[in-house]
Design a protein around this nucleic acid. Structure first.
Lengths: 368, 368
DNA sequence: TTGAAAGCGTTACCAT
DNA sequence: ATGGTAACGCTTTCAA
């Protein structure tokens, strides 16, 4: 039958599994020696080593992960460093769910996960967490792996990077990059997101020709890039004005009132509004207040439960998502595989820019 | 530190791993007996069995997957049944990539994958494949697992379902459901996709008030539902007409010419066009021919390389994707875990409706 | 520098 | 109906 193909997964050779025994026989040495070569431990005569490596290569040996884990019985400790789940509108619960799903799916009996929750708006809280993780300078107590959302000041990031380097801990950064390091990153390119927001504003604007870009609260590097890309792209595709609004340190009411004032000033020319972070709900409120006569489209970021609900109700018109659950999942999975199976980690895994409208919001209910 | 929480993964109890040995001791029996109870094989006295089960429960025993796989050394055979990769514009290469990624990531040394490629436009080809898989009625030769895209006639689906039932093969259907069975499904809800297309047509239409829904080639259940949902939703959100075009059995040129003719008849009232399957390129060509004066937005399905390119060039305006790579990945992963680790399979895994515009097409380059 | 042997937790087989 | 034991492939320890 020409329609049939066969694909053999991993190091099989005609139903003959290659084991350390085989390569020991082939190289004319003992199991112990093979192991020493394979793990670069202990002393081996140069020529013996060469013979062993030749055997490994020519027989294309692949270690059996089950035997390895069984034999080692080692427990890997992974520390998760993530903002408090209830902060930022519950955003961090999403990647955290992904992390848990990854570990559950791997269901390896030799993985121990410890989570430290920090307050991202309080640098001391982050420092405390670092202390409790790395404080006892015993290398023994340091985790084998670290999974971190480094949404803190550059200084704090530097401190973290130093700890990682010092203890040589396998790490993955998700959501944002760990500044000044080449720690593997799982997240979205902020510029792509900004451009997509620009296109959506263009498609949805109705009446007005100008647009407003709003940021509430802290602006970090990631957010700044997103806003910049939005502004630049809007200039490319539209001749309308763009109004930048950045509001810091207010209560919800203050934010909303301020937004109403500022947006009203723009007046009838306003065609659409973009919230660069997850607070689109406040923007929707403000728009509802000023836009009694006509609807001003609201474009936001991050599909929190609240945003999803407003989307369904037509009070938010589009949400851009960065697949937070998948971020957590991929980051955790990559790290766990690296520790347990010794696989290499990707330098970065980029999430697609997800466009969510009222019509497809339900299909994202369980983001995976 | 209040910021620290600890989460233990799986059945550990204070660093004490519960093994069969423990439950044997606790129940006052031998390893062999424990094994017989655990796997319902062989004869065990009722009261002995009760004691063993009690021990298992009270000690909350969890089998060690590594030891199990090592001991069994069993090789699971998984058969993948998928349309020829070059057909349908190369669409099937996507899920196939996902399948390979899943197996590679699991990198279990005890998985053997055999792929049968069929011609989905030739039922005999599918029947041949079934023969070559199940032909020799030896149960020994039948695969342990089956991964199938059942995009064939209802009759062929029934034949397949019969084989699966007869040999009791663990199976997963991806892309489309296996009709009349409860075989786990990984894919998209076609109705959600149709609705999203409707919204996009509404957002993008420019000038005209009517819309055309086009299907080239074979219409299966999945596609029909998608087109129906599009039509119904369009009626909900717009007062414009909708024109249904279904063309069967033509060459590319015939399709294109016919499209030009039919779309021209609609004339200036045409606001947007929707291609329900992956042939949006032909629609883009036809539109380019008739729409010299103004641009008619083209909305298509499935992010093939070709479609992505046209999207970048602005000749297609939006593509809806069903994450084919992820479909293959999740389907294969679920099946492999079921076979190797004995985990339960989900009844269905639904893919989100992905909206792809020129601005975010690059972020989907490696769909995962 | 090298080899031999014990042990990880399960399963399978052969005695009883 | 039940118990004992070898074997799976790898790592680690202890001797030589």
């Amino acid at each position: 039958m020409p329609c049939v193909g066969t694909l053999r997964i991993s190091g099989y050779d005609e139903d003959l599994v290659i084991t350390v025994k085989d390569i020991a026989r082939r190289a004319g040495v003992s199991l112990g020696t093979v192991d020493r070569v394979l793990h670069n431990r202990g002393k081996v005569a140069p020529d013996t080593e060469a013979r062993v490596r030749e055997a490994v290569k020519s027989l294309s040996y692949t270690p059996n992960i089950h035997a390895r884990n069984l034999s080692q019985g080692r427990v890997f400790v992974i520390t998760v460093l993530i903002p408090q789940l209830e902060s930022d509108g519950g955003y961090w619960a999403e990647p955290y769910r992904g992390i848990q799903r990854a570990f559950a799916r791997l269901n390896m009996s030799n993985l121990e996960v410890r989570t430290s929750f920090f307050n991202r708006y309080n640098e001391q809280s982050f420092a405390d967490c670092l202390d409790s993780i790395f404080g006892a300078c015993d290398d023994v107590l340091a985790p084998d792996g670290l999974l971190v959302a480094p949404v803190v000041s550059i200084d704090s990031q530097r401190t973290l990077a130093a700890h990682i380097a010092q203890h040589n801990i396998a790490s993955v950064a998700f959501d944002s990059r760990l500044h000044g390091t080449d720690v593997p990153f799982v997240g979205q390119d902020p510029r792509q997101g900004g451009r997509v927001a620009g296109r959506l504003a263009r498609l949805m604007r109705d009446g007005g020709s100008s647009v407003a870009s709003v940021t509430l609260g802290r602006v970090d590097v990631h957010l700044q890039e997103r806003a910049n890309a939005f502004r630049e792209y809007w200039a490319e595709i539209s001749s309308g004005d763009i109004h930048d609004l950045s509001l810091l340190d207010g209560s919800e009411e203050e934010y909303r009132d301020e937004l109403v004032t500022r947006l009203s000033e723009i007046g009838a020319d306003l065609g659409a509004v973009f919230m660069t972070n997850a607070s689109a709900d406040l923007l929707a409120q403000a728009v509802a207040i000023i836009g009694i006569r006509r609807h001003i489209p609201v474009i936001g970021y991050d599909l929190l439960a609240q945003n999803a609900q407003l989307l369904r109700e037509g009070r938010i018109d589009a949400i851009i998502s960065q697949r937070p659950e998948t971020q957590g999942y991929e980051a955790a999975h990559m790290l766990a595989r690296h520790l347990a199976f010794g696989t290499d980690m990707d330098a970065e895994i980029l999430m697609p820019v997800e466009i969510v409208l009222p019509e497809n919001v339900d299909s994202f209910s369980s983001d995976r």
